[in-house]
Design a protein around this nucleic acid. Structure first.
Lengths: 91, 91
DNA sequence: GGTAGAACCTACCTTTAGGTAAGTACCAGA
DNA sequence: TCTGGTACTTACCTAAAGGTAGGTTCTACC
């Protein structure tokens, strides 16, 4: 399952629940549409959980599941590799 | 840098040089065009090296560089995660 | 002589991910 | 009253990745 933003989203979710608008500001450059899309996909894959507080104004947050945590851990080496070699490549 | 096939290509290159047609058979479902594209990109990023024997009929093989090996190692955890959870997801 | 295989290249078409821009319901605060 | 913020949805457009199908040059083999 693709989505160039998913790793970044997960990265920002790694240390606890985050509200939608919070993520939107954290993940720079992502559009609202795509952020929701990705979050929905992650949720339907049981990587994150969406919690709607049913309040008004709306309040929703997203949390990584234990399963999602295993994904994050699997992604970390690649992430670190990317950081180490960001001078050499642009990915 | 994208390319849904790159991880698979690298996976098949992990244990030594492979000829083009060899890779083509190993990486099932990839078209020749895309395989070459990806190999060229990997080569220009110094992840693999292309060796042309200058023979006729043509003979070329591709080898992972030490740098490429660090990438493969960074990819392995994600790869294993994918294998472990291939029943749950389709990616 | 005809076929098959090597390692490509080229042109064309389709799919899809992502971007842009607008709209929605509701409330708080200046 | 008007603006701003929340969490979305909808419609439309574009760019790029990938797929398909053909051609090329040369040799080896039946």
């Amino acid at each position: 399952m693709g989505g160039k933003w998913k790793p970044l989203i997960l990265y920002h979710l790694r240390s606890g629940p985050r509200r939608f608008s919070d993520l939107r500001r954290a993940v720079r450059g992502i559009s609202e549409k795509v952020l929701i899309q990705q979050l929905r996909e992650l949720a339907s894959a049981d990587v994150v959980v969406r919690h709607d507080y049913g309040e008004v104004p709306p309040r929703v947050d997203y949390t990584v599941t234990p399963f999602g945590m295993t994904l994050i851990e699997a992604l970390l080496p690649l992430c670190e590799w990317g950081v180490r070699n960001r001078t050499a490549t642009s990915a």
